[in-house]
């Protein structure tokens, strides 16, 4: 019996099955609740699998390498964001410069406010450095936090948390502030909540999702270029 438990605690097959099932459950709940903002399949998947990992005492590193076949597809899926963009690119005509200005300013605001708030509230130096690149998509946030002297894997946790904020609160915020233009919605979402916010928009409104994907890519670029400069002023 203990052999079976030991196998289940370390088997990639079990990890993959649990991850897919939790995600499937999240999709089911999203449909059942008519698209409730809290019913984001990624959020439900993370909560359910996270709880299992803690309860059954699974080593996170073992889980993470076990589900590499799932995580791998994040790369090709990021490439695939070119597809909705291709469909809606004509709507960006004449707005390239406003977009670039808004995204560069947005990246600077995200970095500066993140670091200064953490500092004023008594966060440690390493937390300040880890928070700095959180608006960039996960792989960029990890690399940038490492370069800056933060904790790379923790930076990916921060990036995912702000992504979840966007997926849950973003559409509500847009309605509250009467932001209706799908291009504005998409660019703003992609600039702060990268892929997770993008996936929520893609599900609700493909045009907004297309611009969120573009914004996510450009924000990653802007954050990578700005962070070394701002770090000079902030630290």
């Amino acid at each position: 019996m203990s052999d079976v438990v030991e196998w289940a605690r370390t088997s990639p097959l079990v990890f993959i099955a649990a991850t897919l099932a939790a995600y499937q459950g999240g999709c089911w709940l999203r449909t059942r609740t008519g698209g409730h903002p809290l019913a984001q399949p990624a959020v439900i998947g993370i909560v359910v699998v996270g709880a299992l990992v803690v309860l059954v005492d699974v080593d996170y590193a073992a889980y993470r390498s076990g589900v590499e076949v799932i995580a791998f597809w994040l790369g090709p899926a990021t490439v695939a964001l070119a597809v909705p963009l291709h469909r809606h690119l004509h709507r960006l005509q004449g707005l390239v410069l406003p977009m670039l200005l808004a995204l560069v300013a947005g990246a600077a605001v995200s970095i500066t406010t993140g670091v200064l708030l953490a500092r004023w509230l008594g966060g440690s130096d390493v937390i300040e450095r880890t928070v700095a690149p959180k608006a960039a998509t996960t792989p960029v946030a990890i690399a940038l936090a490492d370069d800056l002297g933060g904790i790379g894997p923790l930076a990916s946790v921060f990036a995912i948390l702000v992504g979840i904020l966007g997926a849950i609160l973003g559409p509500w915020l847009f309605r509250a502030l009467r932001i209706r233009d799908p291009r504005t919605r998409g660019l703003a979402m992609g600039a702060v909540s990268h892929g997770i916010g993008t996936s929520r928009l893609l599900h609700d409104d493909e045009q907004a999702g297309a611009f969120a994907g573009l914004s996510m890519g450009l924000t990653a670029l802007a954050t990578a270029l700005l962070l070394p400069l701002l770090a000079f002023l902030l630290f």
């Binding site: 399949p41 998947g45 993370i46 990992v53 996170y60 889980y63 799932i70 995580a71 909705p84």
Partner: peptide, 17 residues
């Protein structure tokens, strides 16, 4: 692939624990 973009964030998200 994009229909299931949210699935692909679960492995890194579980890192929160």
């Amino acid at each position: 692939l994009l229909e299931h973009l949210q699935l692909l964030f679960i492995p890194a998200g579980v890192g929160i624990v």
